[in-house]
């Protein structure tokens, strides 16, 4: 049994104008019209009906009606099964009171989760506009590789000499120093950098780390599990120089916890990124991008 559920959205194609000479009287021009066409229904149940007719002004109008045909589940009419349907309850089921709620429908919608998006692999989102692409070029000057020291060629994470470089023994602290110094010297806008934040300054672990993480830091939540730091970098670098990208990982499972932080050199860039990317669809999810609030402890 099929039921036609119509949600008509007639697209009126551009009427091909009849010559006025051919238009004698407005009667019986139907033979001029192409016959009605029916396409489908295809495997998605989409059926197209293309009709032609004349409107009041005598113009030929093509009307395409797209409908979806949905098959309703056929009720199983097995006689034995129907009989069983009326069987008396037995065992513990007899004493079952209505409120026992042994059977419940899940309140949660469970989907068959695909390992990756159907068809294509998740790809990074296209740059939203030319201005953004320009910005990324401008930011290239600030792109200083911390491993090999090359300017404007690649990010530290993409450094080809990464494996050759001596391992950084305190990964958290050291980049912090170079980052801030870079921010101070590179930004070149005379932004004030407190002495404690300047390169080479004496540092004390915890508070400093938080300080660094707070600087123009943008919190990105509702990331898909497949999003890795390079993906975020790809996404955010279009807005301006990025000093740090971090995606929170679950230590036990090794999967993403669905949020991350991005630090910008310039606050304006960060603000722009927030304006642009908050609510942006990324890998089937809608991103939430906001200023990172300092941890309250």
């Amino acid at each position: 049994m099929a039921i036609d559920q119509t949600d008509p959205n007639p697209n009126q194609s551009k009427p091909s104008k009849l010559r006025w000479g051919e238009l004698e009287e407005d009667d019986d021009l139907d033979f001029l019209l192409p016959p009605k066409e029916v396409i489908g229904p295809d495997e998605n149940g989409i059926k197209k009906v293309i009709e032609y007719k004349f409107n009041e002004e005598g113009n030929k109008v093509k009307i395409t009606t797209t409908t979806r045909v949905r098959k309703l589940a056929k009720a199983r009419l097995n006689k034995r099964a129907l009989e069983r349907r009326n069987w008396e309850k037995f065992g513990d089921a007899v004493r079952e009171d209505v409120g026992s709620r042994l059977t419940m429908v899940s309140t949660e919608e469970i989907l068959l989760e695909r390992p990756r998006a159907p068809g294509t692999k998740p790809e990074e989102i296209k740059v939203a506009g030319d201005s953004l692409a320009q910005l990324s070029k401008g930011g290239a000057v600030l792109m200083v590789c911390r491993t090999c020291g090359k300017k404007g060629d690649h990010w530290t994470s993409k450094c080809p000499y990464k494996d050759l470089a001596a391992p950084v023994e305190t990964f958290v602290d050291k980049p912090a120093a170079s980052e801030t110094s870079m921010a101070a010297s590179g930004a070149g806008k005379g932004a004030y950098v407190p002495p404690s934040m300047r390169a080479g300054a004496e540092r004390t672990g915890g508070s400093d780390m938080r300080r660094r993480n707070d600087e123009n830091s943008v919190r990105v939540t509702n990331l898909s599990e497949d999003t890795r730091e390079p993906d975020l970098m790809e996404l955010f670098r279009t807005f301006g120089p990025v000093t740090r990208v971090y995606v929170a990982m679950d230590q036990k499972t090794g999967t993403s916890r669905g949020f991350g932080f991005v630090n910008f050199v310039n606050r304006e860039d960060a603000q722009r990124a927030i304006n642009k990317l908050n609510g942006y669809g990324y890998d089937n999810l809608i991103l939430r991008v906001e200023w990172a609030t300092p941890r309250s402890n």
Partner: peptide, 30 residues
């Protein structure tokens, strides 16, 4: 075979039969 009943066994001692369409419990085998 008709797919209208579902039998479940567990480490508690009573196998149970359910209607496979709506999950209603039909009975237990004590």
């Amino acid at each position: 075979r008709d797919g209208d009943l579902l039998f479940s066994c567990a480490k508690d001692h009573t196998p149970t039969v359910w209607f496979a369409d709506n999950g209603e419990r039909l009975g237990t085998y004590r």
